[in-house]
Structure formats: structure tokens, C-alpha cells
Amino acid sequence: MPARAPHLPHYIERTALQKLCAVAELPATHLLPAGQKTLANMVQKGWIESSPGSMARYRITAQGETALKAEIPMPRTTQARAR
């Protein structure tokens, strides 16, 4: 299976983005199963941003909303080609 394009969120990233769409911001503990490494990668991609403070809180960015709405390409199966 080919690797997913970097502009498309994988399952754990998508879960965190969906949680952040519902509220203004959330602490990292509420974004599980996304861990610190996943959150750091999402910040690097520009999908989320951290708000200043003693406890890390995250909010979704416009780029994150775009990534969440991006269409995931589905592989064509041999059955679909035969039709």
C-alpha cells in the first residue's frame, strides 16, 4: 500500500482535528490517542497551534480545517474497473 500523501491526516490526526473543530481549544490530554509526537508533527504541518500558558492547549488552524475536509483518495479495485 502506498504511503498517504503528507497533506492528508491519518486516523489519529483526523481524530484530534475533529475534536478541535467542536471547541475553541483543548488541552493535550483531551486529544488522545494523539500523543506529544503526533501533536508536534501537526503543529509543524500548521494544522494546529499551541496557545501560551503553563498547560499546553491546542486549537485548529485554517490549514487544519482544510486538511480535515480534504478528500481521501480511494484505491480502485479490480471489481470497480470491470463494471
Score class of each variant (00 low, 15 high):
29 T>V: 08
33 P>C: 09
43 V>K: 15
49 E>D: 10
54 S>L: 07
75 P>W: 00
23 V>C: 04
48 I>T: 06
61 T>G: 07
62 A>V: 06
8 L>R: 02
35 G>K: 08
2 P>W: 11
72 I>M: 10
26 L>M: 07
3 A>N: 03
21 C>L: 08
72 I>T: 14
67 A>D: 09
68 L>V: 03
45 K>P: 04
77 T>K: 00
47 W>E: 04
19 K>S: 07
7 H>R: 06
46 G>S: 03
63 Q>I: 10
30 H>M: 12
36 Q>P: 09
29 T>K: 08
55 M>S: 15
55 M>K: 13
78 T>P: 05
22 A>Q: 07
51 S>M: 15
50 S>P: 01
6 P>L: 04
31 L>A: 06
70 A>C: 02
43 V>W: 15
30 H>P: 03
78 T>M: 07
2 P>N: 08
24 A>N: 12
29 T>M: 04
68 L>M: 02
75 P>H: 01
6 P>S: 06
58 Y>R: 04
44 Q>N: 12
80 A>N: 00
11 Y>K: 13
45 K>Y: 05
73 P>G: 08
38 T>R: 06
44 Q>W: 09
19 K>C: 06
1 M>Q: 14
52 P>L: 05
28 A>M: 10
8 L>T: 01
39 L>V: 14
3 A>V: 04
43 V>R: 15
37 K>W: 14
74 M>P: 00
50 S>G: 02
17 L>P: 09
71 E>V: 14
4 R>P: 01
4 R>I: 15
57 R>M: 09
40 A>R: 10
62 A>S: 13
41 N>L: 14
78 T>A: 12
65 E>V: 14
74 M>R: 05
40 A>Y: 04
6 P>H: 04
68 L>H: 02
3 A>W: 11
48 I>L: 02
54 S>C: 10
39 L>Y: 10
70 A>H: 03
5 A>M: 12
74 M>Q: 04
59 R>P: 07
76 R>Q: 03
7 H>E: 14
21 C>N: 07
35 G>R: 09
39 L>M: 15
66 T>I: 08
18 Q>V: 07
56 A>E: 14
7 H>V: 03
3 A>Q: 11
44 Q>Y: 05
28 A>Q: 12
71 E>M: 03
77 T>I: 02
55 M>F: 09
12 I>M: 06
12 I>S: 06
20 L>C: 13
38 T>A: 03
44 Q>L: 12
5 A>T: 14
64 G>V: 01
54 S>F: 07
3 A>L: 10
76 R>Y: 01
1 M>W: 07
75 P>F: 01
71 E>Y: 11
28 A>D: 10
25 E>M: 14
34 A>I: 08
53 G>K: 00
72 I>H: 12
61 T>F: 11
39 L>E: 12
64 G>L: 05
63 Q>C: 13
